[in-house]
Design a protein around this nucleic acid. Structure first.
Length: 421
RNA sequence: GGAGACUUGUCCGAGUGGUUGAAGGAGCACGCCUGGAAAGUGUGUAUAUGGGAAACUGUAUCGAGGGUUCGAAUCCCUCAGUCUCCGCCA
């Protein structure tokens, strides 16, 4: 959520920045400021009346104590008039209007976010690694899953519905090995491990920016008014909702494994085959809460961290800096990581690392007291480190040989074998 | 799921309708004292928001939301949470 004082200072710059995200209603900025002016004016009027009421009430108390009932009753009549004047809904309406507009405004993209509207306009920051030459007859992961009985998508469809894979036997163990490896890699870099709840309440979903407006992307348990998490980012970041942190605690580094549930309504076709897009997948997330001055250094550090993890798996990858039009609602800047699947001959997104600056912390009211004693919002960042099914798929596809999947060395101790046969 | 007790500031804890944003204590910060420390002692110590250059000041906040009243931390209602006992359960 944007901060009104920031908008007020530079409404034109805010509009210009929003244009980079192809925000369609720049006029909302002016409307917002008008409503906020109105809100302030009405608030002041109401406060002044309340002040009169408070003063009179004290006086009434003293008059009553002295037994001066008549004078007290006179004052009571005044109070009744003031309360009459306070009894109008214009203030509530103005405040609601301000809030409604504020909720619709996405975060401003950072200065160096590339201009562009579609994924094709994302900027390739760098590409790394050699694309493997696969054996003749190399298969895509959905066939490999079947041949080695690693996962059963049809079975998941029977039990739940399409997009809910069942991992079986060594396929399940391989998933577990990846999770374990990722978590160890993250904790070794100083991230504290959490296992959060996999359902969140509306306050939490609001805090990280899933609500309002994105209800449709989350599974919702109406009987209890809870949402299945689309990512561990939601519960873990919300650990610090309504918290005033001590500056010396920063940066706070957290990591968590979780299943992720995404409705992903309206996606069909071969791009979503196999593991490419599913409704339930697992992911290990890294999250940092930082001093505003450091967040861009931390962003680089997180990018390098994810990069090192992908490199350790020996997968060819590229890093994209998303253009304004392709970025998420809450993000100020996002780097996407894609690994290359040689069998599918396409890039698969496996991580997304973002700086949200104060967008989430303003919603969550996560602050610290700076050296001058002033409350300031922290910056929040997060990234996948890593998302499972596509990494899983890329390993199967890129490492397949006649006799099985020859796993990258870092996974051997976790999987307890060098090969999936 | 049933019954009961409870929910006050960083923490402990007083407070059952009238200068209570909230006693007292602890903690913390700064000062005095000290050769240094401890002890002692003085002052300060919430958040949001409006006005103001600032000093300062208006308003709101005692789990949340509503109500009664001239006036609510205190009375009433609803909800949430915590604890204890019972039930159920991996």
């Amino acid at each position: 959520m944007l901060q009104i004082p920031v908008i007020r200072q530079n409404p034109e710059i805010v509009k210009e920045r929003l244009a980079h995200k192809y925000f369609k209603q720049p006029e909302l900025i002016d409307e917002l400021l008008l409503w906020d002016d109105k809100r302030k004016q009405l608030q002041t009027e109401r406060d002044n009346l309340q002040s009169e009421v408070n003063k009179a009430s004290k006086e009434i108390g003293m008059l009553m104590a002295k037994g001066n009932i008549d004078a007290a009753n006179m004052l009571k009549q005044n109070v009744a008039t003031w309360k009459e004047a306070m009894n109008n809904t214009a203030l509530d309406e103005a405040a609601a209007k301000v809030q409604a507009i504020l909720y619709q405004l996405p975060n401003l993209p950072a200065a160096d976010v590339p201009t562009g509207r579609t994924p094709e306009e994302n900027e390739v920051v760098r590409t790394f690694g050699d694309i493997p030459h696969l054996m003749t007859g190399a298969l895509c992961h959905w066939d490999i899953l079947k041949n080695y009985a690693l996962a059963d998508l049809e079975l998941g469809t029977k039990i739940t519905g399409s997009g809910f894979p069942v991992y079986t036997g060594q396929g399940a163990k391989f998933q577990r090995a990846l999770i374990q490896y990722f978590l160890d890699f993250n904790t070794a870099a100083g991230y504290k491990e959490f296992i959060p709840p996999f359902m969140v309440n509306t306050d939490s979903a609001f805090g990280t920016g899933q609500l309002p407006d994105k209800e449709g992307q989350m599974y919702y348990a109406s009987a209890d008014d809870l949402y299945l998490i689309p990512t561990a980012e939601v519960p873990v970041t919300n650990i610090y909702r309504d918290v005033i942190v001590k500056p010396e605690q920063l940066p706070i580094k957290m990591t968590a494994w979780s299943p992720c549930f995404r409705r992903e309504a309206g996606s069909y076709g071969k791009d979503v085959r196999g593991f490419n897009r599913v409704h339930q997948f697992e992911k290990v997330e890294i999250i940092q809460i930082t001093h505003p001055e450091n967040s861009y250094d931390v962003l680089q550090q997180m990018v390098e961290h994810v990069e090192a993890l992908i490199q350790s798996l020996g997968l060819p990858y590229r890093i994209l800096k998303l253009c304004g039009g392709d970025m998420g609602f809450a993000s100020a800047i996002t780097y996407d990581f894609e690994v290359y699947s040689a069998a599918q001959q396409r890039w698969l997104e496996v991580s997304s690392v973002s700086n949200f600056e104060t967008f989430q912390s303003n919603r969550m009211k996560c602050r610290f007291k700076d050296d001058a004693g002033k409350m300031q919002l922290v910056h929040t960042l997060n990234g996948s480190s890593l998302a499972l099914p596509r990494i899983y798929a890329a390993i199967l596809e890129n490492y397949q040989q006649q006799d099985g999947i020859h796993l990258p060395a870092v996974l051997h101790p976790y999987f307890g074998s060098t090969i999936i046969k």
